[in-house]
Structures are given as C-alpha cells and as structure tokens.
Nucleic acid binder design. Structure first.
Lengths: 169, 169
DNA sequence: GAGCAACTATAGCCACAGCAATATTCCTCG
DNA sequence: CGAGGAATATTGCTGTGGCTATAGTTGCTC
C-alpha cells in the first residue's frame, strides 16, 4: 500500500476552507438574487456604505474589492444604470471620480442586510459554540493576516494606500 | 453614537473567511500558472487523478467541481487540446463519455503538487500551532457539513450520486 | 515653465462559464 | 414492442471580468 497524496492533511485542510467558502457563497448568492443583487454588487454597496460620505474613489473601491479597476468601471456602470450608485467628479483631482451610493442603493442594502445576517448566523456563526467559533475565527485571522490579500506577489511591504487593506475585519 | 451594522461580528466573521480564502487562492493561482495550469484545470486534474482509472464521467466531474456540465465540456476541450486529458467513450452507456488523465496530465500534476503543498504549509497550515489548526479545521468542517456544497438550494436530501459529495475531505 | 513619470478612469479585445436549447441514448411503463 | 420521459454531452448566446492600450491629469525635477 503506497502513500496516497490525496489524503494528505494539507489537501484536506484547503478542501475544508474552499468548500465552506463555496457553500456559504452559494447561500449568499441566492439571497442576493432575491433582492436583485449579485455578490460583487453587494460587496460594492457594503464598501461604499461604510465609507465616509457613502462614497469612494474608483481606484480605492477596486483596492477594497476583488476587482480590477476596469472591473470596477463595469460594475459601477451597471449599478449606475440601475440607480443604485452615481458618479461624482472629484473636486481636488480631476482624474478621479467618486462612486456614491444613492438613497435607492442604501435602501436596497438595508433590505438585503437582515437576510444576509440571518444566513451568516444560520449556516456559519451559529453552527459552533462560542468558544469553537472564536477559535476558528482566530485561526482564520492568522491565516488572513499571513496571506494578506492585496499583497498578491511577494512584495515585502505593499502598503497600497492609506486605507487599511482589509477594513472588513 | 449609533450602532454600526458594519461592525457586526457576523460581518467580520465572513470577512475573515472570504479574505483568507481569497488570499490563499491568489497564492495558489500564481503557482498554478508556473506550471501552465489554471485553478479549475488543477482541480480537474486532482479529481480525475484520485478517481479509479484516472477517469470520471463528465457529469460526475461536474458534480465534484464547481462547474456546470457545459463548463466541464469546455475545460475538458481545452485540456484535451493541451494533451492533459482525453475523452473515452463509455462502453456501458453511449450517452456518457469519460475524461481520462493522460500520462502527460499525471506528470503535470506531479510537477505541480509539491509546490502546492508547500504553499499550503507556508501560508495556511503552518501558520498555526497544531491545536489551533485542528480547532480551526474542526470549525470549518462543521460549517462545511452544514452548508453542504452541492445542495445549493433548500432541498432536503439532494444525494446527487453514489459518490460522496465532497471526497476532498 | 517644460518635460517626464506616475496616476486615474475608461474602452477594446479576449477568455471563461452559466443558461437554455438540441441531439442522442437509455429506461420505464403500457 | 413502442412511446414518452429522463439523462448525457454539447453548442449558441450572453454576461462578466481581466489585460492592455489610451487619453487626460497631476506632480516632480531640472
């Protein structure tokens, strides 16, 4: 009997992470759709709504999401067309424009958030006792801090902007 | 001072999961690329290589990956064109075809796996002491079992096939 | 002040994947 | 045995997002 690489505990570990993430994302997606949003649109709304003035420069929005700058252009195009966002010229730098959440966008987010939180509680945080939950979250935080999303390549100290790279946590 | 929804611990929790996953996936992606593979191609190779006969019916491959059946058709097209896979007619059911890993595909996987494992260890499993790691993995397993990837909608008992739905863990 | 590099947003082009439609094959029931 | 329905793989169409080029803007250097 030869050793089977596929049973390697490291493979198992990433499998758990990937499948937990995928399953949760799928749950989120169906709930987003109930409110006419996609996952990226929801994330954009969240990032903007938590920013001062409900707005963010396109570049900063790209840095905070998993999108490229051109990707942000397209998403903002769609969401502006749908009335959730609008563009605003940056007074101090004519290269930049702000994406601003409209009242309609804020309303949409308010409608979507309660169900979102309910899903998180039902399928994620509520699945574990408090100690187990904090243990898992501590582990995830350590991993997150290590891989540091935003520092994709092996740069020593990216510091892409003044904003904290991961304000979500 | 009003309560800020964005500081809700549930939001923080999913943020950790999402960012840890995203960061790790990004690390994986650059290593895959060093060996001319994409993430889905690597996953396809893994799923096939661990299956008896290094083969799987297209539908079963779709069920085991995050792809739809048409998605599998395209991926297998590309990988067959690249010589990593080949199609084989199913003798017992002429509707089905097998995707079979070629020796070249197995070689590619063998070349890619060591670096993959190294990345997992460096950025994921190696970031935590053994007890913290198992605590986190136990939590992830509970969440994974709850959301049950493959049962996307609210069906009570999907049981899509005889195969275990998540052989990765 | 002129020149030049860096930055910002966008548009063109392409790859990828999902949905729906289609063709073929299998199975079950009458 | 035949008909109808389920299953399987594929293709067309579409939406999405990344990469690169481009145009406009800023700031730095000399």
């Amino acid at each position: 009997m030869e050793k089977n690489v596929f049973d390697d505990p490291r493979i198992t570990a990433v499998g758990l992470l990937v499948e937990a993430h995928a399953g949760l994302s799928a749950r989120f997606a169906v709930q987003y759709e109930e409110h006419g949003l996609s996952a990226v649109e929801f994330e954009v709304l969240m990032r903007l709504a938590r920013s001062p003035g409900n707005q963010l420069r396109m570049t900063d929005l790209a840095a905070q999401t998993s999108l490229s700058t051109s990707g942000v252009t397209r998403v903002v195009d769609r969401m502006e067309r749908d009335g959730l966002l609008c563009r605003r010229a940056c007074p101090s730098d004519r290269r930049s424009s702000y994406a601003v959440v409209t009242p309609s966008g804020l309303r949409r987010l308010d409608e979507t958030l309660p169900g979102h939180l309910r899903i998180i509680e039902q399928w994620f945080t509520g699945q574990l006792e408090p100690e187990a939950l904090t243990a898992m979250l501590d582990g995830l935080r350590r991993v997150r801090d290590a891989v540091h999303p935003g520092a994709t390549a092996g740069s020593t100290d990216p510091a892409p902007s003044d904003e904290p790279p991961s304000p979500l946590a």
